[in-house]
Nucleic acid binder design. Structure first.
Lengths: 232, 232
DNA sequence: CGGCTCATTGATAACTCTCAACGCAGGTGG
DNA sequence: CCACCTGCGTTGAGAGTTATCAATGAGCCG
């Protein structure tokens, strides 16, 4: 039985461009894999040997300097595509932040398959163009925003990506609650800050009544308007 | 007569995927346009109405905050593709830094043409994937590098992109000379710094004998090794 | 020779980082 | 069941880097 048939991201991932027969063919060259938090699928600078679709979970894309500084250059969610097709090396590592399930392909197999299926390449192109847009928007944050603006922007982005969970209305404002897939250090690595600066901004936002922090990983945005104003 | 026939980037741009007949068809929907330094082709946030290939010159891609801070999110050179196909709005402005010639297409026309020519879409996909890699590498610079590392990295990147001009050997080290297509403010906007910090780093590098600055726009890298070491 | 823009230089302030200590929570083993 | 250990996060004090504000200088064009 084709595992694609039961795939929860079947209609959102790039696979949605394929018909029944094509799906069977693609399924033949792919395999499922589960990753634990912290486990890497691809390492920075290694030969680009595989690509994958994210089925479930959150993963980070990251690069670092020789002396150990790290920068997270992307975060991927279910239905997103990862890896570097049509290229020899991957410029960044891919590491699971949460328990994750991915659908893995050998890059060579995938490249060959893609070249024979223009509709798949088109989907991949649209996805890549969108990712490039998002990445460029993030550059404005890294280059020009202050620590408070960075943290506020980050929380809003997280709310947008993750708050399918809860979203209640209190009075006229909307309250958003979610569980961060990031540690403080990882948030710092996304924003180009230190862990201490991130922590202080969290504390300040809580003191200002803009957010609440029930536990280390949980966030409740109690005042979306203020947070939006702080995001710059 | 087809202007593609005489196009100097004909074999490097995405058009290289097309045969003679296809080139004629593409030529029919495109037109040449010349831009003066400072002139914009696309504005941030506007509807994505056109896309283009760069024939000659250098252009910047930039976004800004409401309060006027600017971040240059990309720099494009001859044979590069600009604009946002298959999308409704462009997330960043496109402005000429030097005198520039571009080959412009209506986005709708281009989209339709591309969908009928998988080889063109494939070229565009490869280009977009490469651009995404380069953009992500730049994020490490923005998020994690110091001012001196940023400026050193910038100069090396410029040397790499522009130093076709002159490249002499003096002793055992290589000397690179080029003309910056950027003002100091624009360099600051690329690196996420202020103009004063950029200026001070230039002055320091000159004092340290790493570079020479014959004029405002000219740079000679006299010690590539030192500069590389400073780039982090 | 002004007048303009752009770049450099200097002094000071602000922000973020660094270093260090402490706190909290979860897990382990006595 | 509690004590302890360990990893992560918070908090504080101080230093360092970069931004800000202000003045000066250099090149360019009328």
């Amino acid at each position: 039985m084709s595992s694609c048939d039961t795939c929860v991201v079947r209609n959102r991932a790039i696979c949605s461009s394929l018909d029944k027969d094509e799906i069977v063919a693609l399924n033949a060259i792919g395999r499922r894999r589960t990753l634990s938090p912290g486990e890497s699928l691809i390492w920075e600078g290694e030969d680009s040997v595989l690509v994958a679709n994210v089925i479930d979970g959150v993963l980070k894309l990251s690069t670092g300097t020789e002396d150990g500084r790290e920068q997270i250059v992307g975060v991927v969610y279910p239905s997103d595509f990862i890896g570097r097709p049509f290229g020899s090396t991957s410029g960044h590592g891919v590491t699971a932040l949460t328990e994750a399930r991915v659908c893995v392909f050998s890059r060579k197999d995938f490249d060959a398959f893609a070249r024979e299926h223009p509709a798949l390449e088109h989907k991949l192109l649209e996805r890549t163009l969108g990712e490039l847009d998002r990445t460029r928007r993030w550059m404005l944050l890294l280059g020009r925003k202050s620590a408070s603006e960075k943290v506020a922007s980050f929380l809003l982005e997280m709310a947008d990506r993750l708050s399918n969970t809860t979203c209640e209305s209190v009075g006229d404002s909307v309250v958003k609650r979610f569980v961060l897939p990031f540690s403080r250090q990882q948030i710092a690595d996304v924003l180009g800050l230190t862990i201490e600066t991130v922590s202080r901004q969290f504390t300040r936002l809580k003191a200002d009544g803009v957010i609440d922090l029930p536990s280390r990983r949980e966030v409740i945005i109690t005042n979306v308007a203020s947070l939006t104003a702080e995001a710059g």
